[in-house]
């Protein structure tokens, strides 16, 4: 019969159309209000694809997600607070396929000898291809791929070469965004500390605390709020005041990485001052 195939096709379309309402009925209006429902909607057992109401709700990225890289800085050991884990060995610059990493190796101003610390570190995010090789091959776990993808800007000449200041994020941040991986890496190093410190500790006869989930020095709940500020706002806002979170959710200042600044739990000015002092001491 002519037209039977078309009718069959339209039946599929109708089922799709109908299915959206089935879901509405199932959650009876609570569909967009409760966080659990978002999970169900985006889950595996749902039929079809449901819209993510970005920016009111966001799909959290998985642990291995990679966007542009960042540098891990110390935030556990008080004596090294704010220092880079990077030893400026240059491996990341070598394995970088599009060669978007520039590193200036630190030197001791008096002796002229290289010191294991980068003096400057640049990543041109207009060249970076987010491949993750730098993080994969870094022997010190000092460079990692960030999860912060919200970085649109109005001016690339000024904002798209990230320098050390912009790249640096504390190690607790890395633990918060990728706990499983961080734990694996720490286990491979033999402790939560930087591998050089672990080495020197072992030399001095001390044994570093074996890393476990429990002694991971961060509080997930706190960091979560920072990592997902918008989503939290969306959840907490009562439904009656619906429009408010939408406006609030829009980026306040896309050019300036305000969120990134907030994420840091330590005083950056103090950290810089400390570094400067250390340098002058040397």
């Amino acid at each position: 019969m002519y037209g039977k195939g078309i009718a069959k096709g339209l039946w599929v379309t109708f089922k799709h159309f109908f299915a959206t309402y089935v879901d509405d009925v199932r959650y009876a209006g609570r569909k967009y209000m409760r966080q659990e429902n978002f999970g169900v909607r985006q889950g595996l057992n749902t039929q079809g694809a449901f819209t993510v109401q970005y920016p009111d709700e966001k799909i959290a990225v998985p642990e291995r997600f990679r966007f542009v890289p960042f540098l891990v800085t110390e935030d556990q050991d008080a004596s090294r607070m704010g220092e880079d884990w990077c030893t400026s060995c240059g491996i990341c610059a070598k394995v970088c396929p599009p060669q978007c990493i520039w590193i200036v190796r630190g030197t001791n101003p008096e002796t002229g000898r290289p010191v294991p610390q980068p003096e400057a570190f640049f990543i041109d995010i207009d060249i970076c291809m987010n491949c993750g090789f730098c993080a994969e091959f870094c022997p010190f776990d000092a460079i990692k791929m960030d999860h912060d993808y919200e970085m649109a800007s109005y001016d690339r000449t000024r904002h798209h070469i990230h320098d050390k200041q912009k790249l640096s994020k504390p190690s607790s941040y890395w633990k918060s965004i990728a706990p499983t991986t961080a734990l694996e890496e720490a286990a491979a190093r033999g402790g939560w500390e930087h591998s050089d410190i672990i080495k020197s500790m072992k030399k001095a006869g001390q044994t570093p605390v074996p890393p476990t989930k429990e002694n991971m020095t961060f509080e997930p709940a706190k960091l979560v709020e920072v990592a997902q500020p918008v989503a939290v706002a969306a959840v907490e806002a009562p439904a009656a005041e619906a429009p408010a979170p939408k406006r609030a959710a829009a980026p306040a200042a896309p050019a300036a990485p305000a969120a990134a600044g907030e994420k840091k739990k330590f005083d950056k000015a103090a950290m810089l001052e400390k570094i400067r002092q250390r340098k002058s001491e040397k």
Binding site: C128, Y149, D155
Partner: peptide, 26 residues
């Protein structure tokens, strides 16, 4: 002339949406 730049290789859909919202802000 470009109004908004969205970094990433490639930007995820959410990153693009963020860029579009940034454009609306502008």
């Amino acid at each position: 002339p470009v109004d908004v730049y969205v970094p990433g290789c490639p930007p995820t859909p959410q990153a693009l949406l963020y860029g579009l919202i940034a454009l609306q802000k502008k």
